[in-house]
Amino acid sequence: MSVTQVNTVKTSIVQDFKEITKMRLALSVVFSSLAGYLLGVDVISWSTLILLAIGGYFMVGASNAFNQIIERDLDKLMDRTKNRPIPSGRMSVNTAFAIATIFTIAGITVLYNINPKTAMFGAISIFIYVSLYTPLKTKTPLSVFVGAFPGAIPFMLGWVAATNEFGIEPGTLFMVQFFWQFPHFWAIGWLLYEDYKKGGFFMLPTGKRDKGTAIQVIIYTVWTIVTSLIPVFGVTGKLYITPVSGGIILILGLVLLKYAIRLYKIRDAKTAKRLMIMSVLYITLLQIVYVADKFIRAWI
């Protein structure tokens, strides 16, 4: 085998590993966890921060690997997923299962070294995602509601990692990311509607790209904005943001709402894609604003 062929094989293995663990998604989840940690901590422990990043990646990677094992036959039917490692034949189910199992054990172990509560919530996240959300995707649109629970845990998980406590602060972070997921995933469901249909997935609340779905997108977008602004009012314990930061988040929220309303008016895939992109931008900037607000107040 030539050097070029060896390098190609190595590249393929790395690429398949990234795909089976959904590296981009995993890194975004880790980002949420780290933001939650920075919000909850009094003095930053870099070792804990590193453990949280590694443990968080393991947990998300495990969930995604198990998900692709379960959905391997359905993935073959969809253009978006037919070239994933398992349906394409590049990776065996046993190999994927080994990765998922190792990642689960390693993730829980790493998070347990932070504190037991963090490990517990990480384990709950994997269980709900794999055992409830994944099988429900082909049975009911309520799968998005169930999937919103593990999806909302990372932001909260960071606070628990920092404090070893669960209270109103991590509960609020959970609520923000919980409501946010509905406009986000329904925008994806709208955009990929035809492809999801091939796999038999029910991702939209009414099952169709219609006004009913679009109205629910608007409603949950409003709830996302409202919950995001709760920390401004000083009713969420140590979790607080200034009115200036609240104003920034409100502006971001109104832009998100504008795209949601546009989806209701136009109801096409292009508008859904713009809403999806804006939703990612919203939650990312919200987390940055929350963290920046805390540290700017500490410096002043």
Rank of each mutant, 00 (worst) to 15 (best):
Met1Gln: 08
Val3Asn: 15
Val6Ala: 09
Thr8Ala: 07
Lys10Arg: 15
Lys10Met: 08
Thr11His: 15
Met23Ser: 13
Ser28Lys: 12
Val29Arg: 03
Phe31Tyr: 14
Ser32Gln: 11
Ala35Gly: 13
Gly36Cys: 04
Asp42His: 10
Ile44Ser: 09
Ile44Arg: 13
Trp46Lys: 14
Ser47His: 09
Ser47Lys: 14
Leu49Lys: 13
Leu49Tyr: 15
Ile50Gln: 04
Ile54Tyr: 00
Gly56Arg: 07
Tyr57Asp: 00
Val60Ile: 08
Val60Leu: 03
Ala62Pro: 03
Ala65Asn: 04
Asn67His: 12
Lys76Ile: 15
Leu77Pro: 11
Asp79Lys: 14
Asp79Pro: 06
Thr81Met: 04
Arg84His: 12
Pro85Ser: 02
Pro87Ser: 07
Ser88Thr: 06
Arg90Gln: 11
Ser92Lys: 10
Asn94Gly: 15
Phe97Trp: 13
Phe97Met: 15
Ala98Gln: 02
Ala100Pro: 03
Ile102Cys: 04
Phe103Lys: 08
Ala106Glu: 02
Tyr112Ile: 11
Thr118Tyr: 00
Ala123Arg: 09
Ala123Asp: 07
Ala123Met: 09
Leu132Ala: 15
Pro135Ser: 03
Phe145Thr: 14
Phe149Trp: 07
Ala152Gln: 03
Ile153Thr: 12
Leu157Gly: 09
Trp159Leu: 13
Val160Gly: 04
Thr172Cys: 01
Thr172Gln: 00
Leu173Trp: 04
Val176Phe: 07
Gln177Phe: 13
Trp180Arg: 08
His184Asn: 06
Ile188Lys: 05
Asp195Phe: 03
Tyr196Cys: 08
Lys198Cys: 10
Met203Asp: 07
Leu204Gly: 09
Leu204Thr: 09
Pro205His: 02
Asp210Pro: 08
Lys211Met: 03
Ile215Lys: 10
Ile225Met: 01
Thr227His: 08
Pro231Phe: 02
Pro231Arg: 06
Pro231Trp: 00
Gly237Trp: 01
Val255Thr: 14
Val255Ala: 05
Leu256Arg: 06
Lys258Cys: 05
Lys258Thr: 14
Lys258Ile: 09
Leu263His: 05
Leu263Trp: 06
Leu263Val: 06
Arg267Phe: 02
Ala269Val: 13
Lys270Ala: 03
Ile277His: 04
Leu286Asp: 09
Asp293Val: 11
Arg297Trp: 06
Trp299Thr: 13
Ile300Ala: 06
